[in-house]
Nucleic acid binder design. Structure first.
Lengths: 143, 143
DNA sequence: CATCAATTATTAGTACAACAACTATTTTTA
DNA sequence: TAAAAATAGTTGTTGTACTAATAATTGATG
């Protein structure tokens, strides 16, 4: 494959990832959900399994600790999550959803489903598997 | 396809796009190239065809005008690009590479080629076409 | 046990992403 | 042609990404 093709795929990758995030963000805003896509991802993980240390969350989401710290700060400011001291390690915090946070997740789940489905229109299960394979291969090549 | 699968693709997409940018950025840093990936993309376009208006550049790169303004500001601060007044439209500027900017592009081109090739290791031409198809479909679905 | 190394979370600084609002022009249209 | 609309670029603000540096704590090694 020639140079231009290599450049082309990485350009498309970046462009599409930005578009997906932007689209979801716009839908959130339309609905008056006062939250960002990244904040949503953190909340969704906490909903599935509460009581996460920040660095566990960071690992799950492939974000670094400083980024997580700030996202959690904002979520706590909004009253959607809270930090509790870790019982065995005083360096750590356990992050969990508040009642308001849980309600928010339940509100947003169906909306996110629509957004995801919209992006995937006209594509098949087979496309999905192939797509996933390529994304994972690229990720591993660069790790 | 179920909800979790939809969530998975967008997560992987975002994660991989971040990894690709991060990887290129690290290689730049190793080589002592004092430039970011986005700044590189702007310079590459200016090298291919000089004399671009800022909004033409923005359109080519699918970035918005404020983002371009700031990238150009930084490149001008580094002496790699310059703004000249547009001869026919006093609202516009023509952006072009300086001599130093041209040299920089020539230095970085082969390095970028390596970086891109690394990401694509173990994938075929067919994978690439399929991947491109999915990316473009998603992009268009959300436009 | 004392020291050194590793880990958890934070803060600071720079850059990009997206949106809104604004200035200065140019183009449209009434 | 005068007023309204559109366009080019900038500035301000918020949020995320990455790096480096730091404080507090824990774990490992001598």
């Amino acid at each position: 494959m020639n140079d231009e093709a290599y450049n082309a795929y990485s350009f498309l990758l970046d462009r599409t990832a930005r578009r997906v995030k932007q689209y979801a963000q716009q839908r959130f805003k339309e609905q008056g959900f006062d939250i960002t896509v990244d904040q949503w991802l953190v909340m969704k993980h906490l909903y599935k399994q509460e009581d996460r240390k920040q660095n566990e969350l960071a690992e799950l989401l492939f974000k670094d600790n400083p980024t997580l710290t700030r996202i959690i700060d904002l979520l706590c400011d909004k009253g959607l999550t809270e930090r509790k001291p870790h019982p065995e390690d005083r360096r750590s915090f356990i992050v969990s959803l508040t009642r308001a946070g849980e309600k928010k997740v339940e509100q947003l789940k169906p909306k996110m489903k629509e957004v995801r489905a919209k992006a995937w229109e006209g594509l098949s299960e087979r496309d999905f598997h192939q797509f996933k394979k390529v994304l994972n291969t690229i990720y591993q090549n660069l790790s």
